[in-house]
Simulated assay, not measured.
Amino acid sequence: MDDDAVTSWVEPREVPREEFPASTWEPQGMRTLEADARPRHGTATLGVEYAEKSGRTLHLQIIQPSRQVAEVPGSESRLPLVVFVQGSAWLEQALGVSLLPLADFAERGYVVAIVEYRPSFVAPFPAQVRDAKTAIRFLRAHADDYGIDAERVAMWGDSSGGHTTVLTYLTEDDPEYSDEPTDEPLGVSCYVDYYAPTDISRMNQEPSTMDHVSPGSPEGLLIGGHAVLESAELVAPTVAMNHIRPDRDLKPLLIVHGDKDRLVPFQQSALLYEALVEAGQPVDLYRLKGADHGGPAVWAEPVMDLVDGFIRSHLPATAG
Rank of each mutant, 00 (worst) to 15 (best):
L306W: 06
T45I: 12
L222F: 04
E26H: 15
L81S: 10
P296Q: 10
L102W: 00
A232M: 05
E11R: 12
K260F: 12
V188K: 02
D36A: 10
V129E: 04
R118L: 14
T24H: 03
V166L: 12
R38E: 11
D199G: 05
A236P: 02
P101Q: 11
E26P: 09
G29N: 10
E176G: 02
S217Y: 04
T57H: 13
R56K: 12
G74C: 09
E184I: 15
P282Y: 00
G162L: 01
V48C: 02
P119T: 02
D104W: 03
D284H: 14
A135G: 09
Y273A: 11
R202C: 10
S54C: 13
R118G: 04
D2W: 02
D308P: 01
A232N: 06
P27L: 10
E49S: 14
Y194C: 08
V82T: 11
M155N: 06
T165N: 04
E107V: 07
K251G: 14
I136H: 02
F84N: 11
D292G: 12
S54E: 13
P65G: 11
P101G: 05
V6Y: 07
I200D: 13
K251E: 15
T24C: 03
S75T: 06
V97T: 08
Q128T: 10
V10H: 09
P218I: 05
T24L: 14
Q28E: 15
S120K: 00
T32I: 13
K53R: 15
T171W: 04
E19V: 07
G258C: 09
R40Y: 05
A35M: 15
P185W: 09
V235Q: 02
D145G: 08
E184Y: 04
S54R: 09
S23P: 12
R56D: 10
W156A: 01
W25I: 08
C190V: 13
E206K: 03
V15H: 08
L285W: 11
T57D: 12
A143L: 13
R17D: 13
L46G: 04
S66R: 14
D149P: 11
D308L: 05
I311A: 07
E26D: 14
A270Y: 03
V112I: 13
L60A: 11
V277D: 08
V264N: 02
Q268I: 10
